[in-house]
Amino acid sequence: KVDLKGEFVLPGLINAHCHLTGSGKPMKLMNLSDKTLEKLTKLLKTPLGKKILSNMMKNNASNALNAGVTTLRTMSDPFYLDLKLRDKIKKGKLIGPRLICAGMGICITGGHGGMMAYTADSPTEVKKAIRKNLRKEVDFIKILSTGGVMDSRKVGEAGRPQMTIEEIETACFEAHRGGLLVATHCESTHGIKEALLGGVDSIEHGAKITDDLVPLFKNNPKSLRGFTTLTSTISAGMGMAVLSKEETKITDVKKENAVLIEVGMIN
């Protein structure tokens, strides 16, 4: 028995969309050039780089637990390090929150999230990436079907459809055969429509949802469970749109894109 007289009991919180490589603090990382990012990625692939990432992810998971978050849904992290951390926690080797992990995401060449994802430019390549993730025993599949704010180079790029409907459909078909749900990064109305038609199980971030899309959310025959959910990451969108650039460390272009996405996501 635990004496809780005069104390408060808080239910465990759930973070439904996070990346263990991020602490929530502003970073200038995505302001770097593609060439610099490529060099950084090569460095992180080394044993030392993976050790640094692993420690960072372990600390971020521990901080979340100490803040009352008992479950984290990780939406793609590099080199399957999230799965290694998940398994250590499961085996009792580390104290941490329950982790529901996507492993490596899947995006197009030059697409959003490339540092933490497989690059796939055809249904065949998408299928191969899904099969790799199934073999690694991920908990669900994460694809990135539209552009995003943090690596946008021009206004309007965030939310631009990137994966084709055929590629999305292939990802869902192959994942569903393995009994896994498919979540997609999606930040535009058109992108949402294509993702729904492809059979995704959850829309991550979101945008303006028009009346004609509502029935597809409620009854989506290509999804694994027959419906599609929305994980609206309001805190991330609002933060970049409302806070000053000095606080968020983002460029003018990213700021404008953040405002555009935030309006659609919330309104």
Rank of each mutant, 00 (worst) to 15 (best):
K5P: 02
E7F: 13
V9Y: 12
L10T: 11
L10N: 02
L10W: 12
G12I: 09
L13W: 10
I14Q: 03
N15E: 15
S23W: 00
G24E: 05
K25Y: 09
K28V: 13
K28F: 02
K28I: 10
M30T: 15
L32R: 11
L32M: 14
L32Q: 12
T41F: 03
T41N: 11
T41M: 05
K42V: 11
L44N: 06
K45Q: 15
T46I: 07
T46K: 05
T46Y: 09
T46L: 04
I52E: 01
I52K: 07
S54M: 10
N60S: 07
T70L: 08
L72T: 13
L72F: 06
M75N: 10
S76T: 15
D77N: 08
P78D: 03
Y80Q: 02
L81D: 06
L83G: 05
R86W: 03
D87W: 02
K90C: 00
K91I: 00
L94I: 04
R98S: 14
R98N: 14
A102P: 08
G105V: 09
G111V: 11
H112I: 06
G113D: 01
M115Q: 13
M116V: 15
Y118P: 07
A120I: 07
T124G: 05
T124V: 14
E125Q: 14
E125S: 11
V126T: 11
V126K: 01
A129W: 01
K136T: 07
E137N: 13
G148W: 13
D151L: 02
D151C: 02
S152W: 11
K154E: 12
K154F: 08
K154H: 09
G156H: 05
R160Q: 12
R160W: 07
P161I: 10
T164D: 03
I165W: 00
E166G: 04
I168S: 00
E169Y: 13
E174P: 07
E174V: 10
A175P: 07
A175N: 02
H176W: 01
R177V: 08
G199H: 07
I203E: 02
H205V: 03
I209Y: 00
T210F: 10
L213S: 05
L216S: 10
K222H: 12
K222Y: 11
F227C: 10
I234M: 04
S235F: 05
S235Q: 11
S235M: 00
M240G: 00
A241S: 10
V242I: 12
S244V: 06
K245T: 15
K245V: 08
E247N: 09
E247C: 09
K249I: 09
T251A: 13
V253L: 07
K255L: 09
N257T: 01
N257W: 12
